[in-house]
Write a protein that binds this DNA or RNA. Structure first.
Lengths: 220, 220, 220, 220
DNA sequence: CATGAATGAGTTTTCATTCAT
DNA sequence: AATGAATGAAAACTCATTCAT
């Protein structure tokens, strides 16, 4: 019954259309907000950028805050899908999994550098519910790294006194590529950045006896 | 002429008065902006908070952006004075100097947690000149850490392939206490936070042969 | 041709359908406008209340003003049918006819209290033609009362120097049950209200020699 | 001390200026709202009518609703001052006091006919607090009439079973000159209107034995 | 006949900035 | 030096109306 309803061609077309619209608006809003900051972006300008009328935005997002929240969540979602995939693709070795996860994180950050900064800049504009949502998503995002660390500890490869902290540090160092890009870009490429940060952290947590095994990850 | 003017007691009184006024306004603005974000703070509300008229603010700061810039610079300045002092007080040992610097940084951040976040949130609102100024100050702020690292390397205690990176990482981890306070406060006190972060970084950069000597800094 | 067309069963069905639709929309609009005032009611909310689409409303009413006019006329029409009926049912005595008419008017007002107020509140929003229509209907509505007064004067029971005025006063006092309901409801029921108002007016217009005959109408 | 403060010339000048501004804005708003209805009047148009900027209105009235409330209260206040004065000026005779009060009420209504209608039309737009305020003021306004009736009853001149009702009826009949002006103006002048309404009501409440004494009030 | 997505002019409100006092 | 009344541009948001389907 529900199934039939969902197959109703009119409804399906409508919802597909809605999906497309929503994505189109989100994309336009993200583009502008990343560039200028949400406060400097008017609903008029979002409408213009998307090539629609102001009123239409309010059909899809109840308010400017809703729109901002949706933009930020969109960014975090894109993080949440790519990092785990990279970790899985890296095989069973916890060290390699951690390395792959961190690298993937850095890559995603690099691709949406401005969007990543948005999270830091604009969260204050959200209401408590929105902020809570963002925080929750961010913690989720770091889970693959935490899992790899945990696996490493259990396998006796890592010595990590505070798992939560170490995982969050990795996340932070990935974010830093966006946050302090103006500083790092002077001397580092993304690859070098990821490589060196990883080496630094690994030296801090690898059991000494395994250092040789992962020597290639520890050099710059 | 200028010299005479500066010694003129009337002028001196005037400039002292101006200094006090400026500080009073800055303090009021900082309080509000840290709490609500600069966009949510009106010049009239700053005036009210400081107990003066709107017009007066414009005697001391040319525009709202000027005021914001001054607030942020004020924050960074307070960082810039305390960290070097702590480093000096720590003696000659580069490791202890680094540790002292990082700890001091964390403490200052903790004292002005919201102000620290301000830097991340509001810099976008500034014009290019303002942003450049902020960046410059931030780099300066990290200089004591960089110096300690350099000294350690020269003394053969540290193995730091990328000095700039390591120094900035320490600065970042100090900032993180403010940026991700909602996360870390669940499990860590400021002292533990600083201690563990320091341990992690030191393990990553200490020459293995010196590990034992600084064992107390490496434990949690 | 027209005649044939009206007998065409398809046309008949269509117009019956249209009638029902129209009534359905009118009812929904009335409900909302009485409660919130026409300005606070959007066409989309009327559509939602009626369970149809916005577009459909425009098939039946050319504009929001048209809809409002139709709502008000609907209210006045319902007044215009019930009062004469009550008067007729009251027999031949002019005093009883007047009493019955006034009571009926009060009852109708009571049943659609908010609708009655609508007339006072919203007429200004109409164009001149609409307002003229409303006024005309209101005057019509008072006609049964005026007729009863006239008959009473001719029969020598009433002494009414200004018939128009007295008739309109009765209409106003009936309206007042709606307009000042917040005041009268504290101390009066509808029945008592109608009874006392009638007594007051009758004492003002009954020839003294007939007072005794209608004593029951003059007491409270 | 307080006295001295109130005599401070700067403060006095300021508050006088504010008073004038407030009156100016109120007047402009009243003019437009009476003519077009509050919903049809934009803050822009009020500003233009008053010859000031939009922003200034918000210095004196927090919102459009505040402004509307102030306009209505202004109208009711002008009623509340003139009617009691007229009653007092009429001497001791309760009948003459009542007559004077009613006439004064009608005159005030006549002078601000559109404003009087405003009360009926726009009260719905107010919040509950505003509506309560209006109702309270209206009841106050009718108090002089109620008092005269009461005095008449005590003096044995009036026979009024329901004092509240009769007083409110008089108030209503005065309002009716504004509400149904389009109808009454065809046949009546204000004087005749007041005279006839008064005659009608007096015939309804005067003890028969006093009819002759006030014969001039009972004729048209 | 019926839908509802889309429009965009119009509304209320805020606030950085100015300037006469 | 200090005030705060006044400005007016710009923002978020609404909703009557249209029209392709």
């Amino acid at each position: 019954m529900t199934f039939a309803a969902e197959l109703d061609p009119a409804d399906a077309a409508r919802s597909a259309r809605a999906e497309r619209r929503s994505a189109q608006l989100l994309e336009a809003a993200a583009r502008l907000m990343e560039r200028d900051g949400s406060h400097a972006v008017s609903m008029q300008s979002v409408a213009a950028e998307a090539g629609v009328s102001v009123g239409l935005i309010y059909r899809y997002f109840g308010s400017k805050d809703d729109l901002l929240l949706a933009v930020i969540i969109g960014v975090l979602d894109s993080f949440a899908t790519r990092v785990p995939a990279a970790v899985e693709a890296a095989g069973d070795d916890p060290v390699h999994r951690l390395a792959a996860g961190f690298r993937a994180y850095c890559e995603v950050i690099d691709e949406r550098r401005h969007a990543a900064v948005l999270t830091y800049r604009e969260t204050k504009s959200l209401d408590e519910a929105g902020r809570a949502r963002i925080k929750e998503l961010e913690v989720q995002t770091s889970e693959p790294l935490r899992a790899a660390l945990r696996a490493g500890v259990e396998a006796g490869v890592f010595d990590v006194p505070d798992l939560e902290l170490a995982a969050y540090d990795l996340l932070l160092l990935a974010h830093a590529w966006a946050l302090k890009h103006w500083y790092f870009e002077r001397t580092l490429s993304l690859d070098t950045y990821a490589q060196r940060q990883l080496a630094l952290v690994l030296k801090g947590i690898l059991e000494p006896k395994h250092r040789r095994r992962y020597a290639d990850l520890l050099t710059n």
